[in-house]
Amino acid sequence: MVRELKVEEGRLYQQPVSESRQLRRQAWCGLANPGDRFAVSSAELLVKLRGELELEVEGALRIRCTDNRLILERNDWQEGWQQRLWQGRVRQLQIFVDHSTLEIFINQGRQS
């Protein structure tokens, strides 16, 4: 994904280029309930965190998030579940996923 970089208050931010919005074919806005399932081949999720969040993508990827950390778990067919941890206050997530790529932007691009 092509990104634009900007510096604000001495911090580097990465965000998807605004032109990527033109590639969206469908949009859905609403509240998801625990256990809701969405069948899509690609998606962009904009999430404002209010409590805990858990997303699973086809049994191969899990994203678990609280207000102070994000855990990304990936199922590697040779080594089993692999984990990555990001610690810090999580207020907003922008997640892009398709058949081969996952991009996560935390707090409007402050972390990616």
Rank of each mutant, 00 (worst) to 15 (best):
M1F: 15
R3G: 08
E4T: 10
E4Y: 12
L5W: 06
K6E: 11
V7K: 01
G10R: 00
G10H: 01
R11K: 08
Y13I: 03
Y13F: 04
Q14Y: 06
Q14C: 08
Q15A: 06
V17G: 10
S18I: 05
E19Q: 13
S20W: 14
Q22R: 14
Q22C: 06
Q22P: 06
Q22N: 11
R24Y: 12
R25L: 14
R25T: 12
R25N: 10
Q26H: 11
W28V: 06
C29R: 15
L31M: 13
L31E: 14
A32M: 15
P34G: 00
P34T: 01
G35W: 05
G35M: 02
G35E: 12
D36Y: 05
A39E: 14
A39P: 11
A39L: 13
K48M: 06
L49M: 10
L53H: 04
L53K: 02
E56I: 11
G59S: 01
G59F: 03
A60D: 07
L61Y: 03
L61V: 15
I63C: 00
C65A: 06
T66S: 15
T66Y: 05
D67R: 11
D67A: 14
D67S: 11
N68K: 09
R69V: 01
R69F: 12
L70T: 01
L70C: 04
E73L: 04
Q82R: 14
Q83W: 01
L85W: 00
L85Q: 04
L85T: 06
W86H: 10
W86M: 07
Q87D: 03
G88W: 02
R89V: 10
R89I: 11
V90M: 01
R91C: 09
R91Q: 15
Q92W: 05
L93W: 00
L93H: 01
L93R: 04
Q94V: 13
V97H: 12
H99S: 15
T101K: 15
T101P: 07
L102G: 05
I104Y: 00
I104K: 01
I106G: 05
I106N: 03
N107F: 02
N107Q: 04
G109F: 00
G109I: 02
G109V: 00
S112C: 14
S112Y: 05
